[in-house]
Design a protein around this nucleic acid. Structure first.
Lengths: 182, 182
DNA sequence: TTAAAGATATATCGAAGCGATATATAGTGA
DNA sequence: TCACTATATATCGCTTCGATATATCTTTAA
């Protein structure tokens, strides 16, 4: 088996501590890694099959009531594979921010309206900041410190980004006033 | 024509100031918006056709030597469409950071090795910071202040992110020492 | 008590995006 | 003149995304 995708490692990471179903994994992703690595059912279920065929995870039937349910747990090979991946330097870093894109082309608008872009961006960052705070509150004392480190990185990032928007707003406003008066 | 993709607006934005070929647009994207909105030939060329059919841009032959070449410029409708988009609140914001993903699952490694993840991430941010500095140097005095605002946002972001990695590295090291000593 | 709503669970499909590459010509330097 | 790079357009396979289909179980409330 050649090169697993990072999404495969998301699965390995989540089944490492305890057996999980595809549905559970999707739910975990949606409340944690989604902010820096999303995954859809269309990725998760086929990936569970591949990982299972490769012997990195094993599935077992674990029905709740009468409904069929398969939970997967990690194998020794899977743990090795996960650790090997963790030891390699991260590659992918991508960002798509429609706000920055609009700001980049904002010269097509009067500056008063360009400022609105920054206001929207800031409002968006504040909303995400609150989402993250809500998640933070649900977390009690835990053994593994890393998810919390990442979460607090997210909080700091949204904070920084929101502040930046505010500062740029002021900067553009100042520049516009200066132009008018001087 | 219903709903254009943000990539369509990248094109409208770049052909607004002067006529450009698909190749030129791709080159412009690669040295500017790519950090927050990438686009491939496979998106650009079909999109140029669509925008042309929709009357938002017009193409004209502009060969260099004997080679065929089509440059596109924006129409009045295209300018309206671009401005209308700029006035709407930005929607898409996505991030995929394999580094944060690894950090999230770093508990599977001894903490000494987990720190290596942060070191790699920091090195990566510094490298991007230098790329952005190189781009900054190529820009002289220009009318339109917005690309420079966005560029400096990128510089500040990579700076912040690099610092954060450094601080988290220290934090984990401290926690490990504390655990060992007391 | 039963009907509706919501949660759990798996699977699939079309549209869109991404990266790599094919093809061709023009210019540049050894 | 040969190799390399830049310009220019186009395409193709793969992955990903989001939405939705299907089904069962649980909870809630008229």
């Amino acid at each position: 088996m050649d090169q697993l995708s990072p999404t495969a490692y998301v699965i390995l990471g989540f089944v490492r501590s305890e057996p999980r179903s595809g549905y559970e994994i999707k739910a975990l992703v949606d409340e944690s890694t989604r902010f820096f690595w999303a995954a859809s059912y269309g990725q998760i279920y086929p990936e569970l099959k591949r990982l299972s065929e490769a012997g990195l995870i094993v599935g077992s039937d674990s029905p709740t009531g009468g409904r069929k349910r398969t939970v997967y747990e990690i194998t020794a090979d899977g743990t090795d594979e996960l650790r090997a991946w963790l030891r390699q330097a991260p590659e992918t870093f991508e960002m798509r921010d429609e706000g920055l894109l609009k700001l980049f082309f904002a010269d097509a608008l009067p500056h008063e309206e360009a400022i609105e872009i920054l206001r929207s961006m800031r409002a968006r960052r504040l909303a995400v900041h609150e989402q993250l705070e809500a998640i933070e509150k649900t977390k009690g004392e835990v053994d593994d410190p890393f998810p919390m480190i990442v979460l607090q990185g997210g909080l700091e990032f949204t904070q920084w980004f929101g502040d930046w928007c505010e500062r740029m707003e002021a900067q553009i406003l100042d520049a516009a006033l200066e132009k008018r008066s001087g």
